[in-house]
């Protein structure tokens, strides 16, 4: 049976890891939501160069591994004189990576709001940015919440790769505990349970919202 003394004896390290995982996932969610929204607006804006920037960003970062982004920021940029610690580098990498996916989700949300609304708002004298800000985005957000929830789950899971740049999150702490105690199986099972504590409720929440949204349509 599972030996929970591993959890109680190393509670400080597990708790620290849990805290860091939550913190960097939350920061990354906020960051990638902001960046993702800007990118989504870029992609559908009636200005060609902005479209290109948005498209290139999304296509590039969706198609390369998160690990390479994290390494580039952590050990690559310092060779050019820009330096971050493991937590900062990891969180920035998560934002860069996840914002590409969130941009696509938000773009889909905006496109789902009827085109006629944009025209109506524009003809009533609102500028493009005002139309976006007051008419389209508020409606799009509702459609976008479930995919955003999914991205948050992905963020929590993906934050585990911060362990290879010594960011001190859950996976890193588990690694150290197992190397120190020579207990592997139980240490990893407990860390899996700790991840599930965050991700399972989120996953159920997303499912619920998706079903409600499907019904309202």
């Amino acid at each position: 049976m599972l030996d929970f003394t591993i959890l109680t004896e190393n509670w400080d390290m597990y708790a620290e890891g849990f805290k860091v995982t939550l913190l960097c996932s939350l920061l990354a969610l906020i960051g990638s939501f902001l960046l993702g929204t800007i990118l989504a607006v870029f992609r559908i804006a009636p200005i060609k160069p902005l479209n290109w920037i948005g498209t290139i960003y999304v296509e590039f970062f969706r198609n390369i591994p998160l690990l390479i982004i994290a390494f580039t920021i952590f050990v690559g940029l310092p060779t050019l004189g820009i330096s971050f610690d493991g937590f900062q580098a990891g969180t920035i990498a998560l934002i860069i990576y996840t914002s590409a996916f969130i941009a696509e989700a938000i773009r889909a949300g905006i496109l789902a709001v009827h085109k006629g609304q944009t025209e109506a708002a524009r003809s009533s004298g609102l500028t493009y940015i005002e139309t976006m800000r007051y008419v389209i985005l508020p409606q799009a957000i509702k459609i976008v919440i479930p995919p955003l929830g999914n991205q948050f789950i992905n963020l929590v899971k993906n934050s585990s790769i911060l362990s290879v740049i010594a960011a001190g999150e859950l996976m890193y702490q588990a690694d150290l505990i197992s190397l120190r105690t020579y207990v592997v199986f139980d240490v990893y099972i407990i860390v899996a349970l700790l991840y599930l504590v965050i991700t399972l409720p989120l996953s159920y929440g997303v499912n619920y919202l998706e079903k409600r949204l499907a019904k309202s349509n």
Partner: peptide, 23 residues
């Protein structure tokens, strides 16, 4: 499926390589 989908892949990789030998 629900359990596997909700834990990090890195954890599954570590688990397969470092923990499975214990069993």
């Amino acid at each position: 499926v629900e359990l596997i989908r909700n834990v990090p892949l890195l954890l599954i990789i570590f688990f397969t390589f470092f923990a499975l030998p214990e069993v």
